[in-house]
Amino acid sequence: MFEVRFHGRGGQGAVMAAQALAEAAVIEGNYAVAFPFFGAERRGAPVLAFTRIDAKKIYSKTQVYSPDCVVVLDDSLLDTIDVVAGLKPGGSVVINSRDKPEDIDLGISVKTAAVDATSVALEILKAPITNTAILGAFAKATGIIKLESLEEAIKRRFGEKLGEKVAERNSLAARTAYGKTVIGKSKGIKKLEPKKQWLPTYQELPAGGSLVEGKTDAGLIGPGSFIENKVMGWATFRPVRDREKCTMCLLCWFYCPEGTIVRISDRGDLMTNYDYCKGCGVCANECPVDAIKMVRARV
């Protein structure tokens, strides 16, 4: 059995990637299962998806804890998540990054395939949805699946839902990324301190799970604890507002799902606190006078 764990962010298509990989494996005559694991659904939040591939029927319905391959759709996740956790000896990592494998520090030195899937996606799909591009890199890095099967699977999955053109472009993204993938070994220097989680026993948990403002070893809990959840690392793009054009209609302020656009009342102005901006682009989309441009946040 070959097990894959996908790390992505809500909206990047990790689930779709896991499903397309399963479909490709079935096309090759294997059995395959793919499933997601979300936190609370939220665009930009880290998500996990899994694929299992085997020659015979797979019964296991648990999450994947020791993958043969880890696929990372967004290298900003490396700062906060130990993506190689549980990786089987001899396992590999496929990563969306502008860096060469040798420059990517995963905390252990393992076989690593890198491709700038974001640029491939932006060029071909005109959106930073990297799931099909990264699958091209997966095919090249692992040899578990043929590129043709993958393209066929992408056509089936995307074609049915989004039409032939979209399917063809996604297939091209996979093929292009396949060609651009560089395989090497990662650096194994950094020690990632996994973020502590507050995990009370049932006796410690306040009655009914009601929380008042509180401090724990793992950080703040309860009202106000959001302050610790900076999300700027999630953003591929960030909004830049043109003060001249802005009419102060406040639609962006109203629609921002993170509440990170604040009104500076004494100046009658707005300010975006980038610490809590996940780069979703909702504000730019809502602005009636196109005063907000989304610019690439990470280079």
Binding site: Q19, E23, V33, A34, P36, F37
Partner: peptide, 12 residues
């Protein structure tokens, strides 16, 4: 059927 474990899992 089990929520997510089946509802959102693909298999043949």
């Amino acid at each position: 059927l089990d929520g997510f474990v089946l509802t959102h899992t693909v298999e043949p």
